[in-house]
Amino acid sequence: MSYPLRRLLVFPLVMLGVSVFVFIAIRLVPGDAITAMLGTESGLLTPAQREALTAYFGLDQNWFVQFWRWLSRVLQGDLGISTTYGKPVMTIILEHFPLTLELAVLSMLIAIGIGLPAGIFAATRKDKPSDMAVRVIAMVGQSTPGFVVGLLLIFVLSVGFGVLPQMGTFVPLTEGISRNLAQMILPALTLGTAFAAAVIRISRSAMLDILREDFVRTARSKGLSRRRVIWRHALPNALIPVVTLSGVEFGYLLGGAVLVEQIFALPGLGRVVLDAIQQRDYALVQGSVLFIAFNFMVVNLLVDLAYAALDPRIRFETK
């Protein structure tokens, strides 16, 4: 347990660094925060009213004072109040994060379900026409931007055949599984197919390396079937690069796939953060990014621990 404990001790330092970075970055965005909050109505404000609003939101203080006040509240579990929604930031995050989490999980299932078998299939047929076909498909998948895939899926499946809805009011999973999946399948396919191409390439490369190892040749010499050698002996060792890539991608997806959520009009966390940046909603941006960073670190810790479960030779021991 020493390794997880050491990693957990690093969490506060990383979170502090992220908080400083996002605090400065959002304030470097050009524009006036009061004008962004009120829009055209800001032109009706008198100088006294503008000064009062600036003081109310604490924007009249220097950056150090603003950061210290915000950090003090964060240490007490308060991420602040969103000026856009008029609600606590944590409440907004918890309202929109389930959609992003579901989208990330569905995308990962699609990517692994397509990419891993395809990568293993290509590796076991190296340099054959089927291997070349899989490699070409993977290259095309990685080269095509996600928003292009999303628009093509909308045009073909929604506009052309009317199989799936293009967009509409989001239905939570708890209120209707079929309606929820009908709304989420296109965004998940958009993200999943792009990531599946990366999984194909990394799993094929890893499997080719493992198939050349001595223990695989030993297993074959014992008379084990080809299927058993591949799935029982080679695959667990080839999964480590796939798990690494999946962990990074899953952490990224938990941050919100902004373009996909924007294309399909999904009220996920990524879209909320994008709107908050445009509205100069400092508290919401800072709190959301801090929440995303924490999730990313947790995912990476779980990935590191999964290495030891996949490969008994790996041990996290103190030196």
Rank of each mutant, 00 (worst) to 15 (best):
M1L: 12
S2E: 15
S2V: 12
S2A: 14
Y3S: 13
P4H: 11
G17Q: 15
V20A: 15
V20P: 11
F23C: 03
V29S: 09
V29L: 15
P30G: 07
P30T: 12
A36T: 07
L38Q: 05
G39W: 00
P47Y: 11
P47H: 10
Q49Y: 07
Q49K: 09
E51D: 14
W63K: 05
S72Y: 11
V74C: 03
L75V: 14
I81D: 14
S82Y: 01
T83H: 06
T83V: 12
T84A: 07
T91W: 08
I92W: 03
I92V: 10
E95G: 05
T100R: 00
L103I: 00
L106S: 03
M108I: 09
I110N: 06
G115L: 00
L116H: 01
P117A: 11
I120A: 01
A122N: 06
A122M: 07
R125M: 13
R125H: 15
D127E: 15
P129L: 08
S130H: 05
A133S: 04
V134Q: 03
V134D: 00
V140C: 14
G141L: 06
G141R: 05
Q142F: 15
P145K: 07
F147D: 13
G150F: 03
G150Y: 02
L151K: 08
L151C: 13
L152R: 06
L152D: 13
I154H: 04
F155H: 13
V159F: 15
F161Y: 15
F161I: 10
G162A: 09
P172L: 05
T174D: 13
E175L: 14
E175S: 14
S178E: 13
S178Y: 10
R179F: 12
R179S: 15
M184C: 04
L186I: 09
L191H: 06
G192E: 01
A196T: 07
A196C: 08
I200E: 00
R204F: 08
A206F: 04
M207S: 04
D209H: 09
I210N: 02
R212L: 10
D214T: 05
F215I: 12
V216K: 07
R217T: 12
R217P: 01
R220D: 14
L224I: 02
W231Y: 10
R232Y: 07
L235F: 11
L235R: 04
I240Q: 08
G247R: 02
Y252W: 12
Y252G: 10
L253R: 00
L254R: 01
G256K: 00
G256T: 00
L259D: 08
I263W: 08
F264T: 01
G270C: 02
R271K: 11
D275R: 09
Q278C: 05
D281H: 00
L284I: 07
G287T: 06
S288Q: 10
I292D: 01
F294K: 04
F294D: 10
N295D: 12
N300C: 08
L301Q: 06
V303E: 13
A309H: 07
D311M: 11
R313K: 12
E317D: 15
T318S: 15
